[in-house]
Amino acid sequence: MDLELSDDQRMLKDSVDRIITEHYDLDHRKTYMSQPGGWSQEMWSTFVALGLTMLPFSDEQGGLGLGGVETMIVGEAFGRGLVVEPYLSSIVLAGTAISHVATPEQAAGWLPGIMSGETIGALATDSAVIAEREGDGWTLNGTAHVVLGGDSATLLIIPTSDGLFVVPGDVTGLERRGYRLHGGGGAADVKLAGVKLTDADRLGGNGGTGRAIEAGVAWLAAEAVGAMQAALDLTVDYLKTREQFGKPIAVNQSLQHRAAEMLVEVEQARSAAMYAALLADEQDDHVRATGYAAIKAVIGKAGRFVAQYSVQLHGGIGVSEEHMISHYFRRLTAIGMVLGDTESQIARLAELGGFTSATPHFGTAA
């Protein structure tokens, strides 16, 4: 298997890395978070202009038709910059859900707006909404909690027992309570009371939700790697420059060992992110389910380890609002919880039988 980036992939990486380096230091990020909605329309337009919002969508749907590796490249760069624009919620989650279950006509109606950045989508992954058939249309009632990006979304994707429904953000009967998230970005608790929709608003089966969550896990894995690597780099630089008793604290062997352990966790997470990118093309549902459960568990564990020891090795400054390490800590903590925490993913992996079953091996031995 060739794990080297192609020339086009390296060009993409260089372009995204340059944008993040030039426009996403801590001061810029704070400015973006202070704007309406908690993110920058100007930066969002920059991502659109680079074609980043078109990456995951097929040529037939008007996208660039690129794959998981390209999305991983963008996710890692966004993780290093702690990007707060709604790429995960609108492009990865809502966009994937639509692209997997929409008819060509429906996709042509909704995806161009999402890819152009004019429409901000959000997928309700924790939905308790009931759809009832009434005449020629549908009526939706219920609630959805912690809808990522739901505070600023202009289009909501709501799963029900009768499939996914596309709900305009300004439809009558829709109420939202928006709030900011611990690691950046926003979310909303949503209530639908007598929301009227048509058959054209119904996407069909709920399979799109599962594929969207898998794409979200792959994105979070890449984002976590970017944040972890940046946190490790800052920590190693700090150990080399911070002096005590006339010597850099990096000469302390126990601190060297801790930094080495952090590096191991970063590389494990990187391997998980690469596996997540390659797993996107897997057709076996069970293989994907077990794979993504394991990936989410790995990045949750690794992210927690790196985040905590980055703060510890920085000392008091590591919890300061004015130091980037505290922001990496927050985002890595949030990544560990979003779309399923580590403990729930380990339990899910066990229920699915893990990567391999021991039964055939024991049977052969017997």
Rank of each mutant, 00 (worst) to 15 (best):
V167E: 13
G208A: 09
D237S: 14
P159Y: 10
G149S: 03
L148W: 03
D151R: 14
D162P: 11
P159F: 13
A193G: 05
D189S: 02
L232V: 14
L279N: 00
Y179E: 09
F165D: 11
A250C: 12
L174I: 15
G163H: 13
A224Q: 00
V264E: 05
H257W: 11
A277L: 03
T209F: 08
L181W: 03
A200F: 12
G207I: 06
L174N: 10
L174R: 14
E175C: 12
G208I: 07
G208N: 10
R211G: 09
A231F: 00
V225I: 08
L156Y: 12
A212C: 06
P159H: 11
G178F: 12
E223G: 13
P168Y: 15
L192T: 03
K196W: 06
D237L: 09
A260K: 05
R270V: 01
K191E: 08
Y275F: 08
Q256I: 04
G163I: 12
R180I: 10
A153M: 04
E261F: 01
I213S: 06
Y179K: 07
M262L: 01
K191R: 14
A276G: 03
D201L: 06
L239G: 11
E267Q: 05
Q229M: 10
D189K: 00
R211N: 14
L148R: 07
L156A: 13
M274H: 08
A215L: 01
A269T: 00
E261Q: 02
A222C: 00
R258D: 04
L220Q: 04
S254E: 12
I249H: 04
L263A: 15
R180P: 14
R270W: 02
I249T: 07
K247H: 08
G194V: 03
M228G: 01
L164C: 15
V195K: 04
A212T: 06
V236Y: 06
K196L: 10
Q253W: 09
V195E: 04
G246W: 07
T172I: 15
L263D: 11
V266G: 05
S152P: 06
Q256N: 04
I158S: 14
G169Q: 15
L164Y: 14
D199S: 04
V251W: 12
L203M: 09
A221T: 02
A277H: 01
L232S: 08
E261D: 05
I158A: 09
D233I: 11
R202G: 03
D189E: 05
G184H: 01
D189L: 02
G204S: 07
G226I: 06
K196T: 13
I158F: 13
A153Y: 03
T154V: 10
G226Q: 02
L164H: 15
A260Y: 04
L279I: 01
P159G: 08
D201C: 08
R258P: 00
T241V: 09
A187D: 01
A212V: 09
A269L: 01
R176L: 07
I157M: 13
D237A: 15
E243N: 06
S254M: 10
V190W: 00
Y275N: 04
L181M: 09
E261S: 01
D151T: 12
E267D: 06
Q253H: 12
A224T: 07
H182Q: 08
T209W: 08
L197C: 08
Y238S: 07
D170Y: 15
G205L: 11
V217P: 09
A273P: 02
G210H: 08
